[in-house]
Structure formats: C-alpha cells, structure tokens
C-alpha cells in the first residue's frame, strides 16, 4: 500500500495559493504528529472517546493526502508497543512523503 496518494496530494497543493504551501506542510507535519500522539495516549489511557476523537481527526487530516496507510494503522490494535512503534514510523514516513511532493511547489 502506498503511503499517500501522490496525485491527490499534488493536486491539493496545486489548487492552493503558492504562499500557503509551506505553512500547509508545517501544519500537516504538526497535526499528524500531534494527533497520532493523542491517539496513542488515548489507547494507553483506555479512553474510548479520546480514541474516537483522535482517529476522527486523523481521518480528516489523512483525507487530504489519501494517507490510507496511516488510517489502517490507526484502526488496528495499538496496544502492543511494537504496533505503536510501527504507527509512529508510518506517521513520519507519511510526513516525509507529503513534504517531498510539496517541496517543488514552495516559492523560493
């Protein structure tokens, strides 16, 4: 499974004013990290409402880039430490992939 939908991601960035590409990249990285962390905290705390909320936010974020891999990890059992580690690896890889696509569009 691809980390993100490259075509969708590119078209999303291209549809926006060039000046927002860089802030969008920063916000994307920040939101993905923040909400993945919240999800893991909610899983550890066994707080179902917080889990649901975090997953929903991640879903909204990932929809912008077709990041289905993140959602597949987020939907699985994240209680085992190795699952959490894989999830975090996936988040970082997704951020990298988004930045790689957006980088050429950032005005010099």
């Amino acid at each position: 499974m691809d980390l993100i939908d490259r075509e969708l991601t590119l078209s999303q960035f291209e549809a926006l004013p060039p000046e927002v590409v860089a802030p969008l990249c920063e916000a994307t990285a920040s939101d993905l990290r923040e909400w993945s962390l919240r999800l893991l905290e909610a899983v550890v705390a066994e707080d179902p409402e917080a889990v649901r909320r975090a997953r929903h936010s991640l879903k909204g974020l990932c929809a912008n880039f077709g990041a289905d891999s993140v959602m597949q990890h987020a939907g699985g059992d994240l209680r085992p430490p190795e699952a959490r580690a894989r999830f975090q690896d996936c988040i970082e890889a997704t951020i990298t992939a988004v930045l790689a696509i957006a980088a050429p569009l950032i005005p010099q």
Partner: peptide
C-alpha cells in the same frame, strides 16, 4: 475548523 492543516486548506480554497 480545529485542525490547522484543514484551516489552511479551506482558507486557501476560499481565497481562490
């Protein structure tokens, strides 16, 4: 919108 990413996307679309 609470997510910064989505705020930027929506705002960008609206300005366009």
């Amino acid at each position: 919108e609470d997510l910064a990413t989505n705020r930027i996307v929506v705002e960008g679309c609206l300005r366009k």
